[in-house]
Design a protein around this nucleic acid. Sequence first.
DNA 1: ATACGTTAAGTGATAATGTCACTTAAAACG
DNA 2: CGTTTTAAGTGACATTATCACTTAACGTAT
Lengths: 223, 223
Amino acid sequence: MELKNTILQLFPKLSEANDANGINILEHCQQMTIPEGTIVFHQGDQCLNYLLIISGSVKVITRAENGREIVLYHITSGGSCVLTTSCLISSEDYPAEGVTETDILALAIPKPIFEKYMGESKAFRKQVFHSYGDRLIKLITLVEEISFAKLDIRLAKYLLTNGSVNTPIRTTHQALATELGSAREVISRQLKEFENKGWVQLNRGKIEITNHDALANLLPATH
Amino acid sequence: MELKNTILQLFPKLSEANDANGINILEHCQQMTIPEGTIVFHQGDQCLNYLLIISGSVKVITRAENGREIVLYHITSGGSCVLTTSCLISSEDYPAEGVTETDILALAIPKPIFEKYMGESKAFRKQVFHSYGDRLIKLITLVEEISFAKLDIRLAKYLLTNGSVNTPIRTTHQALATELGSAREVISRQLKEFENKGWVQLNRGKIEITNHDALANLLPATH
DNA sequence: ATACGTTAAGTGATAATGTCACTTAAAACG
DNA sequence: CGTTTTAAGTGACATTATCACTTAACGTAT
């Protein structure tokens, strides 16, 4: 089956050599498609499945009382929702909300199956732990960035990783502010500055990079 | 043995009823004491043990190039180092550094034993996952706080949770800045403001709370 | 007890970000 | 075509961070 191969490619740990159990997991789980813009979970929700994302992307955000939001991370193909997993095991309240950014195709492993394979398959455990460690490290990096890095640098970095000279970025200043944990006005002004310098060209809902190198020079030396 | 009881009390998951394996773990691991101020791990270190803290406290921080630091979290009695665990399994680079804040007593479970029990004991898995989820949630809360909460509120909260009218807080403004991810000068000014309002009394290395309620009123309503 | 070096805290100027209360402009839709 | 919606711009002001210092308190050795 095509799908099965895709899955095994995305989650190699499930197919590791001498671990026959891993593969069986696929027979006990359920495919699901979820449309864009769906709230997959919010604070306090309970969850009954371990979710693996096969295609599409989910963003996990937290919101302040005054409405400001910040994106904690994105889950894309090959990722799993560690918050969901965490709740699967310890059943605490979600401190965040998950929203699909595109239509997604996901694999839901029911709680009992999840627990069974956590016990039986070392490879599956590794897969799960890997997601956890990964997420933890990304979160720590986020803390580092929002506390220390200047906004122009973070913005430039975002622009460079999400667009290029030929492929404009389609997003709003508000979405960008959420992505970087800043305020819309601040992003607007910063972008305007970039535009004045001739580094980008702005249009409603679209940002075109016109000078890649100048933006890249803003970033700290690669390390 | 006294110690054994202490450990079982701190890590109840290790002693859950029908899970005999959990208890055996204790026979394969090693006690260790580490003096205050020791760097337990830094970026790039490799780690060979799963660490459980029995007494004392470790702070985990990350540092910017310009020297500014922020405390990510503390590990205290009953906690385990999830970063260490993460590295135990996936062997990525540490994005942070761990420093003992007091002398600590810890239990080191060697990697092979750790993996063995992860497979055999559901209770142990639960214990480990619980630490993970916990940490994840705390980190998300931290992101929320540093991006949204105002400094006076965060400072007031810190003062109230770490001291009271009769028990002064012994720390420096610099340490406080690190704890809250701010700059020393900013903390000094904010504290001075509190002092001017008669809410605290400042002395070198010591902060005394003189008006608990006023500080508490700064905090958002309990929820 | 005094002097000296070290660490903690204070200060003023300035830059960067965030917040508020709007206005203006572009797109979407009946 | 006019009316909503949604996106973006703006000025004034508040908060926080940074820089380049100064001042004060403490520990230690003479």
